[in-house]
Computed example of a mutant assay.
Amino acid sequence: MRTPSILVFGIVFAPCGLVLDLTSTVAPHWRIIRNIPNEAPDIILQQGIWDICQASTTTRKVTCNQPNPTYFSQQIIPIAKGLMIASLLVTLLGLAVAIAGVRCWRERPNWIIAGIGGFFIFLSGVMTLIPISWYTHIFTAIPAESQSITPGYCIFLGFIGGIMEVLSGSALIIGMCSCCGGWNRGERRSSNKSTYFHNTAAMPRRIEVPSISRTRSDASSVPYSRDTLDGRDFPQAKPSGRINTTYSSRMCDADL
């Protein structure tokens, strides 16, 4: 029996969200500052939660470990660090639990364990969306060297990764419910308490064909019926005991 689609959806989306969240955590590209005073027009600052890099749009040269005590002293920075790291760890824990519940090597899945793993994955997605949303809300209020501030790609990756983890965890949690767990792909709850689910093969339906009896109408257009074709209505010649096998070879008028 194949793995249910709802479990496949949860198991596939969770690692994708994990990769996006990991990229958003380590990359110094949460916001971009342009038109910095006393700097060349092509110089930009790439600020993240762990590091600040100075890059050039013409030479592609990047110099990281730029000091900025004012930026790192903001309240959002340590909170974002803690929540993003916790989100990654909880996602790994949720995947480990969910994989143990999915029937990759067994005949039937363990919906309860898969649902518990989905709860951890859902929680990790929420822990990712909180700092990303908070940083997006105040990223223009954080002091900067210039007023030309735009969000970086880490913001978009964090949003997409968090939403994917929320959807993945929700799918696994829904699969744990009785309305979906075991009621798809021919699985039904077994009356035996020792077996949670059993597969019931589809039995062929027996179609009762009704018998049609035609009543004979008195106003039939046929002047006779099969019952009248007997010897009582039509006289028949009685067979003779002798058969005349002789014939005359003389041509008669009837032969012409």
Rank of each mutant, 00 (worst) to 15 (best):
residue 3 T to H: 03
residue 3 T to A: 05
residue 8 V to R: 03
residue 8 V to S: 05
residue 11 I to S: 11
residue 13 F to K: 01
residue 19 V to Y: 00
residue 20 L to D: 02
residue 21 D to M: 14
residue 22 L to Y: 11
residue 23 T to M: 15
residue 24 S to Y: 07
residue 24 S to K: 07
residue 29 H to C: 10
residue 33 I to Y: 01
residue 42 D to K: 02
residue 49 I to F: 07
residue 49 I to A: 05
residue 55 A to L: 07
residue 58 T to R: 13
residue 70 T to Y: 13
residue 73 S to P: 04
residue 73 S to Y: 02
residue 73 S to F: 03
residue 83 L to V: 00
residue 84 M to E: 12
residue 89 L to T: 02
residue 90 V to Q: 04
residue 91 T to S: 10
residue 94 G to F: 08
residue 95 L to E: 13
residue 95 L to D: 08
residue 96 A to Q: 03
residue 102 V to N: 04
residue 102 V to I: 06
residue 111 W to Y: 15
residue 117 G to D: 02
residue 121 I to Y: 01
residue 122 F to N: 01
residue 122 F to L: 10
residue 123 L to F: 09
residue 125 G to Y: 03
residue 132 I to C: 12
residue 135 Y to M: 14
residue 138 I to S: 08
residue 139 F to M: 11
residue 141 A to D: 13
residue 147 Q to P: 02
residue 148 S to D: 12
residue 162 G to A: 05
residue 170 S to G: 15
residue 171 A to D: 01
residue 181 G to C: 08
residue 184 N to M: 11
residue 188 R to C: 15
residue 191 S to N: 15
residue 192 N to W: 14
residue 200 T to S: 08
residue 202 A to P: 04
residue 209 V to W: 13
residue 209 V to A: 13
residue 210 P to Q: 00
residue 217 S to E: 11
residue 219 A to K: 12
residue 223 P to R: 03
residue 227 D to V: 03
residue 227 D to Q: 14
residue 231 G to H: 09
residue 235 P to A: 09
residue 235 P to C: 05
residue 239 P to E: 10
residue 242 R to H: 15
residue 250 R to I: 15
residue 250 R to M: 15
residue 251 M to G: 11
residue 252 C to Q: 14
residue 255 D to M: 13
residue 256 L to V: 11
